[in-house]
Every structure is written in structure tokens, then in C-alpha cells.
């Protein structure tokens, strides 16, 4: 019996195995004296890839909320920000602005998951009973409130943000390129583990109930399921995952500031999810990859185009906005989504 036959067959199990291997390899690489060097332009690819793994956890959580349960959460960035700020405030050491308690970072990372979940529960308890589009507005308002709190309160470091957050992977690895590679491996592994966990959850009968709620709340309630409880759980899981992603981002970036957590983040993950096809874990990751690929291409194209980088950034956002409009109009199920299952005409 060869090794290949022993490999698990289900996609969730395979992702779990892959994720664990990646994390272990990444940590081992960081601890070893080995170094990696990327040739010239490739560094940009790896930087975007690291950001992709962080956003991937965001989009997977959002897809659990919107794709599976039908909750229109348009303030997803708030949970990302709450997670990042939790890690920043608990773990940073002697930042000149904002609270910095200097606690060990694993504790802070765990706390980011919990805090974001709690904030999710509060937002959920107040807004999950609203109609779809009003839920979108309530969550958007929550994100706006938190954003202006971080800009204005001294505990959050104001517009400067919080610095001197420990970067465990950077500390262990030898140089910048090695850090990038190690971060990509570890974060990629964590994304794969997230994928595995969510795939298990949504393939289970639990996931069927969530999709039943999305399809028809009344019917689901009439077969004796507590719709609100399920909605709340899905919302809190998604929020906690976003908080975890935020915590990872803070530990990778070493600093947080309000400019990292604008509505732009929400728009990016939403477009990625809709483009790929909501309620399909692999599809949303694919869609996100396409959107972030555009970002990458535009970075290179900017060097060739005769315009300022600010103008080019505007042009890119125009393209992103048009993609959103066109996807909704001509391909509401997304590229890889199942139109029949989502109940949309395409």
C-alpha cells in the first residue's frame, strides 16, 4: 500500500492535511537557518499572495454568512478591524500612540477571535431581525462607527494607529524575503485549515439548515428550526474568523491604522465572493484571486501607463466597480456558482 493510497479523498480532509503540512513546513523553515531570495519583481507577487491568504479567511467567513445563510453583512471590515486592533492593543510593546499592554502574542491572537465574535454577537443581536437591505445598512453603520472610534479615541492610537506589534514570523526568519515566504506558507496553511473546517461544517446537516434559511426562512421555521439561533451562529462564526484574519494581519504587518480598515476591504471581499460564486468555498476563493490579480496586474501596468499613480488607482476602482455591476447583471451566480442552487436567473 503506497503513501498515495493513504491520502484522504474528501476535499475537506485533503485541505486539512495540506494546511497542517504547510503550517509545519513554514514554522520549520522559519526556525531553520535557511534563507530564501526572490528574484526582483516576484517579491510583489508574494506580498499580494500573503494579503490574499488573509483576505481569503475574510471571504470564507463572509461566504458562510451571505452565501450559505443569506445574511447581507456589508460591514465585514469591522470584524477584521476589531481582530487587528485587539492584537495590536494587547500585544504591542511601547507603541507611542494608543494602548499597548505587551502581553504574549498567542494570547492576543486568541483574544482577537473572541473579541470579534463578541462584537459579532452584539451586532447580530441588534440587526439580524432586520430585512436584508436594512441589515446591510446596519452592519455598514457599525463599521462606520468603529472606524470613527479608532480615528478619534486615544486608546486606538487615533489616525496614527498602533505600532510595535510583535512580528513572530519576521523575528524567527532571517531576512525580508524569507519572512515573506514563511508567512505565505503559514497563512496559506491556516487558510486551508479554515477551508477544511468550513467545508465540514457546511457539508454537515447544519449547513443544509443554513441554506434552507437562505432559500426560505418561513419554511425552515415551520419544520421546527430556530432560524434566529442559526443565523446568529453563522454570523458569529463569520465575525470570529474575520477577527482571526485581522489578528494575523496585525502580527504580519506590525502596525495597524484606520487606513487599513476602510470600506474598500468590504467591497473587495464582496466582489470576490460574488464574482466567484457565493455559497461555494472554492469559487469564492477563485473570485477573490481574480480581483486581487487585477490589483497585481494594475501595479505593473501603472509603470507602463502615462498617468500618475493616484489617477491609476482611480481607474482601477472604476474597473472593479464595473465588474461588480456586470457580474450582478449578467452572471448573478458568479463564474463558478450554481444558479439553480442560489435561486437566481442568469
Amino acid at each position: 500500500m503506497s503513501v498515495a493510497d493513504r491520502l484522504p479523498t474528501g476535499s475537506a480532509e485533503r485541505a486539512a492535511l495540506l494546511g497542517s503540512v504547510l503550517v509545519v513546513v513554514g514554522v520549520a523553515f522559519a526556525a531553520s537557518p535557511l534563507t530564501a531570495t526572490f528574484p526582483g519583481d516576484l517579491t510583489v507577487f508574494v506580498e499580494i499572495a500573503v494579503l490574499f491568504t488573509v483576505y481569503a479567511i475574510l471571504v470564507l467567513g463572509l461566504d458562510l454568512q451571505y452565501g450559505h445563510t443569506g445574511l447581507v453583512n456589508f460591514g465585514h471590515v469591522v470584524f477584521f478591524a476589531v481582530g487587528a486592533y485587539t492584537v495590536a492593543m494587547l500585544a504591542s510593546q511601547g507603541s507611542f500612540a494608543g494602548l499597548s499592554l505587551g502581553l504574549p502574542w498567542p494570547l492576543a491572537l486568541a483574544a482577537s477571535l473572541v473579541t470579534a465574535g463578541v462584537v459579532g454577537a452584539i451586532v447580530g443581536a441588534t440587526s439580524l431581525r432586520l430585512r436584508d437591505d436594512f441589515l446591510a445598512i446596519a452592519t455598514l453603520a457599525a463599521a462606520e462607527i468603529f472606524h470613527s472610534l479608532t480615528e478619534n479615541l486615544e486608546v486606538f492610537g487615533g489616525t496614527t494607529g498602533i505600532f510595535s506589534i510583535p512580528q513572530p514570523l519576521a523575528a524567527a526568519a532571517a531576512d525580508y524575503d524569507t519572512t515573506l515566504l514563511v508567512t505565505l506558507l503559514v497563512f496559506g496553511g491556516l487558510t486551508a485549515l479554515t477551508y477544511a473546517g468550513l467545508k465540514r461544517l457546511t457539508d454537515a446537516p447544519y449547513g443544509r439548515v443554513l441554506r434552507a434559511i437562505r432559500a426560505d426562512e418561513l419554511v425552515t421555521r415551520s419544520v421546527g428550526k430556530s432560524v434566529f439561533t442559526y443565523k446568529m451562529q453563522a454570523f458569529v462564526y463569520g465575525a470570529a474568523l474575520a477577527g482571526f484574519a485581522g489578528g494575523l494581519f496585525a502580527l504580519y504587518n506590525g502596525a495597524v491604522a484606520p487606513t487599513f480598515f476602510t470600506i474598500q476591504v468590504t467591497v473587495t471581499v464582496w466582489i470576490g465572493m460574488l464574482l466567484g460564486g457565493a455559497s461555494n468555498h472554492r469559487a469564492v476563493l477563485g473570485g477573490l484571486a481574480v480581483i486581487m490579480g487585477i490589483r497585481l496586474v494594475s501595479r505593473f501596468a501603472n509603470d507602463a501607463a502615462p498617468m500618475s499613480s493616484a489617477e491609476f488607482a482611480s481607474l482601477r476602482l472604476i474597473v472593479v466597480g464595473m465588474i461588480l455591476i456586470l457580474v450582478i447583471r449578467y452572471r448573478p451566480a458568479g463564474i463558478w456558482g450554481d444558479a439553480k442552487e442560489l435561486g437566481v436567473d442568469s
Binding site: 472604476i318 472593479v320 466597480g321 455591476i325 447583471r329
Partner: peptide, 8 residues
Amino acid sequence: TSIGLGLV
């Protein structure tokens, strides 16, 4: 759609 249009 209106969010996309606003961005554009």
C-alpha cells in the same frame, strides 16, 4: 449595483 456604480 449601486455600490459598484458609486465606486465608478
